[in-house]
Design a protein around this nucleic acid. Sequence first.
DNA 1: ACCACTACCTCGTTATACTATATACTAGTA
DNA 2: TACTAGTATATAGTATAACGAGGTAGTGGT
Lengths: 112, 112
Amino acid sequence: MDNFREMLKGVLEGCVLEIISRGETYGYEITQQLRELGFTDVVEGTVYTITMRLEKNNLVDIEKKPSTMGPPRKFYTLNAAGQEHLETFWRKWEFVSSKINEVKAKKIQKDV
Amino acid sequence: MDNFREMLKGVLEGCVLEIISRGETYGYEITQQLRELGFTDVVEGTVYTITMRLEKNNLVDIEKKPSTMGPPRKFYTLNAAGQEHLETFWRKWEFVSSKINEVKAKKIQKDV
DNA sequence: ACCACTACCTCGTTATACTATATACTAGTA
DNA sequence: TACTAGTATATAGTATAACGAGGTAGTGGT
């Protein structure tokens, strides 16, 4: 199975928000966490476009810290607006995914 | 709650395929069915871009029939390729939605 | 010097949903 | 007749988001 690209639109940002909400983290680490969570094809460029967008929309607070493993890291934490955005995201997901699953359920019903 | 636009990318086409798979139907009717299924904001233009794409990708067979209610209708049925595409879609959906729900589940776990 | 890993950034591409608008057929009504 | 509403299809243009490809930098090992 390949190419979930279009299906991830609108949800990947929510997942990044969720990861940040669990505790201070930075772009490179977020990418790795997404991969561990099953989104194996997500690349760094994608995550950075998302974190940049979160910055632009003022959903995160930023703190730059030095690292002994390489260049300085840019740590993100959710602010109040980000927290609210995340809750809205999960409500949206719940709504949309339940609708899709209804469509799917009717399909199964038809097969019986 | 508003604007599921981005979240519907990649899934709306699958839903249209599913609707067609249940039996011969046409664009205008598909729009109404999607609305009944909960996608209340889906408009005709959106559905036509999808059905046009399905045509272009040879996933549907087409038959034009006159109507007593207005202009002729363009009826769609899934062909073999369309059927296969639909099955792939549901597998993708199952995969992606389960991953997202895992992310969400861990969020709940954290709150406990 | 070179490579690998960590870490960030950005430009351009692609896919898709949506907006707005146009066309056309039927039927009712003022 | 002219209009309105409902049915029905189509399309040009826009917005958004993920992704591909490439660049820059710091640290450490060979």
